[in-house]
Simulated assay, not measured.
Amino acid sequence: MTVEDLPPEAQVAIGYASPEHRGAFAALLAFDRNLARSVAGASEAIVGQLRLAWWRDAMAESADDLPRGNPLLDALADGFGEQRQHLGALVDGWESVLLAEPIDRLAIQALKTGREAGWLALGTALGAGADDTAVRLAAGRWALADLLSGLPQEDRTPEIIADAQASLGQPAPLPLGMRPLAVLDALARRSLAAGGAPLLAGRRSAMVALRAGVFGR
């Protein structure tokens, strides 16, 4: 999976990363999208679980034992180092979504927690010096907005929308090194306020992304 395969808001956000860290941000977002596709494309739950298990095992491997040759796995190894092992929580989150029929609040919470763990691991790997609470809040809002915006209308229950909007609030400052997350958070807050609108659609959202990319909020 390349950057061009990612959603437009992810492509925009990655553009605000420093050149030396751009690959790590792209790897995290590509990994998340890969897991989402594994879940969405599974003809049976067991098929999806087998795919997810491969990635879970790979995240648990030490650097010396990690197989090479898979471009995404290589990018995660290079971008995350030993912090890659924390990405198993992201796999667990997507497995919860896979096994929920239909998707429910518990599965959504599990995915939110897994996505937060991924961003926290990335911040540590990059030495961004970000406050964990700020990263968790921003990542959680993006996690919910991204999921909600992709849900079919019939799955957007009032409870799910209310849970997602409960995460709204003033963003905590993120360091320059985590500017892509600041962009996604700004777009997520706008999306959630609108009940799960697409994160990047129209001139207004483009301006929101630009302001967050430049000023971090």
Rank of each mutant, 00 (worst) to 15 (best):
V208I: 14
E101Q: 15
G41L: 13
E44A: 15
L210F: 11
P71N: 01
R37N: 06
P102A: 08
I161E: 15
A42Y: 10
W142A: 03
R141M: 02
D146R: 10
D65Y: 06
A75Q: 02
I108E: 13
W54H: 01
L111Q: 08
A27L: 01
T124N: 03
E101N: 13
D163W: 09
A143S: 15
L111I: 04
G118P: 14
L168W: 14
A162K: 02
L73R: 03
G169N: 08
A212D: 14
A100T: 12
P198S: 06
I14K: 01
A125Q: 05
Q85P: 03
R179P: 09
A36K: 00
D185E: 13
A138Q: 01
D74C: 12
D32Y: 02
F215V: 00
R156E: 06
P175R: 07
L168K: 13
G140N: 07
A121R: 09
V47Y: 12
V135Q: 02
S205D: 15
A36M: 07
G15V: 03
L122N: 12
G88P: 01
A166V: 02
E159I: 05
A24G: 11
G202Y: 01
P180H: 10
A194T: 02
A53N: 03
W119F: 14
M207Q: 14
M207E: 15
F80T: 11
R204E: 15
A63R: 14
A206C: 09
G140M: 05
S167F: 09
P175F: 03
T113W: 02
A186F: 09
A45G: 03
H86F: 05
L52D: 05
A117F: 09
L168R: 14
M1H: 05
A206N: 14
L111N: 14
A24T: 13
I103G: 10
F215C: 06
A24P: 10
G216D: 14
G41W: 08
Q83K: 12
W54D: 07
L6K: 11
G169Q: 11
R211M: 15
P67Y: 03
L199A: 03
E61Y: 01
F25M: 07
A40N: 08
L151P: 00
G196R: 12
E95H: 09
P152K: 07
D131F: 01
A188Y: 10
S18M: 11
Q49V: 03
P8M: 07
A201L: 13
M1T: 02
D65W: 01
D155K: 14
R51H: 03
H21M: 02
A125T: 00
A110T: 09
L137W: 08
D32C: 01
A130N: 04
R105D: 12
A36C: 06
A26M: 05
L181E: 04
S167C: 12
P19K: 11
D64S: 10
A130C: 00
V39C: 12
D155R: 15
G169L: 01
